[in-house]
């Protein structure tokens, strides 16, 4: 079934896969009419990371007003929308289930189609929301607290996995090292901030896997090396945590940039996409842009607010499924993990 193209399509998106409760309304997969994001960061800070049970408890308290706010911000009523899209995979299972169960009830009562969205495809779609049509094929680096994957994209929805992390995700390494260095949570912004006054190169950390020809990553070794280095430095009386943060950030980012560019060269693509929470890292953005430019390639990334988890990317990603009539049944379930992206 193809939806009549003259009519605008308004999709409500709901996202509760980790610690952000978000609802958004997007028109025709392009125009963000509202995008309400309620972050739980301050609640999880005392724990030094996201506590799944606490996140789930907060989602069920927040989801009603977050949804209401999305309609208020868009100036719309429930009756105006044409479908309900919800993140159903991958993520924290208990957290996903709050958004999914709510979305099912909401869609059912309004007799609207329900669309289950892959969270990672949502992150990638944030680029389409921001930049509109991107020239494909492209290489896409999906990099977040839960994922580090390199994809070759034929178009907006067809892709193959070139490689990924064999242990920690990049964002996970940021979190763990930031915690170890006493910089707080979340780790990505904390390390980026600390690194601003520091200088990389005073200490030297390994660029893990850069010597390997494949497109896989490993950050667990880098994390351990950084922790050991910091213990050693402190013993020697060196307390420059900013230098340490700068070197760690560079060591991680350089590998991401080099492997991504290598893939872009090998598959002869000129578009490079960044997606996911770590795509908000300004060193990753600038280094990727500078090096890509030297080779005549263009880098696309979403604005910061679309890098973090948000429902606009979910409502956007659902548009294509809506147009093709790909709807979920009432038995749609949540999946914590995916066999592949």
């Amino acid at each position: 079934m193809v939806y009549l193209s003259q009519q605008e399509v308004l999709i409500l998106g709901i996202e509760t896969s980790c610690d952000e409760t978000s609802a958004a309304i997007v028109r025709d997969g392009r125009d963000i009419l509202s995008n309400v994001i309620h972050s739980q960061i301050s609640i999880h800070q005392p724990f030094g990371g996201v506590v799944p049970e606490v996140a789930s408890r907060k989602h069920i308290e927040n989801i009603p007003w977050v949804v209401d706010q999305a309609f208020t911000d868009a100036g719309l009523t429930y009756e105006d929308i044409h479908a309900v899209a919800v993140t159903n995979r991958p993520g924290l299972i208990g957290a996903l289930l709050v958004g999914l169960s709510y979305a099912k009830g909401f869609a059912y009562a309004l007799k609207l189609p329900l669309i289950g969205v892959n969270h990672l495809q949502g992150h990638i779609y944030a680029n389409i929301l921001e930049h509109g049509d991107i020239p494909f094929p492209a290489v896409c680096l999906v990099v977040s607290g839960g994922h580090t994957s390199l994809l070759l994209m034929e178009n907006q929805s067809q892709y193959q996995l070139l490689g990924g992390t064999l242990d920690d995700a990049a964002g996970e390494a940021f979190d763990k090292v930031a915690r170890f260095l006493g910089l707080g949570y979340p780790g990505g912004p904390a390390i980026e901030k600390a690194a601003r006054t520091g200088e990389a190169g005073h200490v030297r950390l390994p660029r893990v896997f850069l010597d390997r020809p494949d497109y896989n990553f490993s950050f667990s070794g880098l994390k351990t090396a950084a922790m050991n280095m910091w213990i050693k430095l402190q013993r020697q009386g060196d307390k420059r945590v900013d230098n340490m943060a700068a070197e760690f950030q560079l060591a991680l980012v350089e590998v991401l940039v080099e492997k991504t560019l290598r893939a872009a060269r090998a598959y002869e693509v000129s578009s490079i996409l960044l997606a996911g929470g770590v795509a908000a890292n300004s060193l990753l953005r600038s280094l990727m842009e500078n090096r890509a430019e030297d080779e005549g390639k263009k880098v696309y990334y979403p604005p910061i607010e679309l890098c973090t988890d948000n429902a606009a990317m979910i409502a956007g990603r659902a548009y294509e499924d809506f147009c093709q009539g790909i709807y979920a049944g009432l038995d749609l379930n949540a999946q914590a993990h995916l066999p592949s992206i």
Binding site: S56, I60, D68, G94, L97, V98, S101, G105, A107, A109
Partner: peptide
């Protein structure tokens, strides 16, 4: 069950708000 309770209540919240 924490998760079971939330599945029921989130479903009811969705139904009740929309209807």
């Amino acid at each position: 069950s924490f998760t079971g309770l939330r599945i029921g209540l989130a479903t009811v919240k969705g139904l009740a708000m929309a209807a």
